[in-house]
Design a protein around this nucleic acid. Sequence first.
DNA 1: TGATTTGCCTAAAACTATTAGGCAAATGCA
DNA 2: TGCATTTGCCTAATAGTTTTAGGCAAATCA
Lengths: 189, 189
Amino acid sequence: MVRAGLTAERLTRAGAELADEVGFDQVTVSALARRFDVKVASLYSHLKNSQDLKTRIALFALEELADRVASALAGRAGKDALAAFANVYRDYAREHPGRYTAARLRLAPKTAAASAGVRHAQMTRAILRGYDLTEPDQTHAVRMLGSVFHGYVSLEMGGGFSHTAVDPQESWSWIVDSLDALLRNRTAP
Amino acid sequence: MVRAGLTAERLTRAGAELADEVGFDQVTVSALARRFDVKVASLYSHLKNSQDLKTRIALFALEELADRVASALAGRAGKDALAAFANVYRDYAREHPGRYTAARLRLAPKTAAASAGVRHAQMTRAILRGYDLTEPDQTHAVRMLGSVFHGYVSLEMGGGFSHTAVDPQESWSWIVDSLDALLRNRTAP
DNA sequence: TGATTTGCCTAAAACTATTAGGCAAATGCA
DNA sequence: TGCATTTGCCTAATAGTTTTAGGCAAATCA
């Protein structure tokens, strides 16, 4: 009997693709087994359980997203960096809705601390260097940026902006402009 | 045999409570039947299916939240109204995390159009009257406020702010202040 | 009171999650 | 190359959730 060549990594990648196709909530050990044409129980040699699979997909997505952010930020500063950062988030969510949802999975504190989530936080702070904020303003600003970007992407993904004729791209640009202005006003004298 | 007195409304309310206790994703027809000490199949006389239950909880939460917002906005305008609006959202999410999550459920367009979501949109626009924005700025602002508030609450609920010592309440006030300033700057001349 | 409607029940099928134990393929070693 | 060990996927089985079909007793109504 020819073996399927399953590994945790292949399963995670396939799980991420599945998430993008059918939604992260619909990612199931059974569906993944079907995709590899193996029996469900076979996956349990590579994954602890269903939660483990979801966590792996989340960590994978966080890494991928952090890599994209890092690339986009290279050589940019100020508003330029802010806009690049914002666009990476939005584009990633549009391109990979399932992975984006996965990246928002609540992780165990220890897992989160060892994840690419840390890089995300560092990069967000790096952007704010261009605005010369002092603590605790910097933390407030980190939280605000995270809220706006995640909130917007999440509402847009959920179809929340499809009732109005105004182009979501325009709102996005308007918001990024506004945030830039806001942060510049908050700059320490 | 004494009847349990099930109705769609009682099931919905109990489902909302269950959501707050164990999380919206964990709300299941089986768990609800257990709570009423009734067999699972019995619920299907009152609910179309599991999705129907979730939708009902979502609509219930939207109504409840819209009522709170309406009360909070009565007699307020400008920054006062903005802050009240913001606090209602955050407080509701903290008090009823399951219901808040439910309220964000993606609804079918027809269902959404007949829901209290419409009131939410109207009330958000009402707040902006205090800032004299013209279209399309008003729509951009509606989207930004929705994004920030939902994003913040969602990140806070997910434990995203527990890594830093800064008090989330302070960040929240800082953000509301910032948004007020931002909107005042955008006011049409 | 008798007839009808309604509400909850039993039964059953289909799917998902998870564990235990088995056999054959792959790998390592003499 | 041949044998032993490890590893990978399998079968089997248990348990929980979802959903439909059909039945009987309680509530309602004429």
